[in-house]
């Protein structure tokens, strides 16, 4: 129910500025983008879909930053594990 899923905007419906077709892994549905009227998404942008409405745009920069942070933690962890393994005294 809190189920929000990311989808890519494919196109707007002709004569219906509120409605856009989105793609979720090759599956498509028409959703209402009225809640993003102040900053409508363009085709190619991603939105968060919930019960047939777009609630928010997905900020690709923020997503990249989030992944970078996770990447960083992952790398630091891998480095430490490596250091730990090397420092073992047999």
């Amino acid at each position: 129910m809190c189920l929000g899923i990311p989808g890519e905007v494919v196109e707007f419906l002709p004569d219906q500025p509120d409605l856009a077709r989105v793609d979720v892994s090759g599956v498509r549905r028409v959703i209402n983008v009225g809640l993003l009227a102040d900053d409508l998404p363009e085709p190619g942008e991603w939105v968060l879909i919930h019960v047939g409405f777009a609630l928010s745009k997905i900020d690709e920069n923020e997503a990249a930053a989030a992944l970078e942070f996770l990447e960083g933690i992952g790398q630091a962890y891998a480095d430490e594990l490596a250091a730990l393994a090397e420092s073992r005294i047999e």
């Binding site: 189920l3 899923i5 989808g7 979720v24 892994s25 090759g26 599956v27």
Partner: peptide, 12 residues
């Protein structure tokens, strides 16, 4: 299949 996964995620 990718599309089955997409539809399933969409519908929960």
């Amino acid at each position: 299949r990718t599309q089955v996964r997409g539809a399933a995620e969409l519908l929960g």
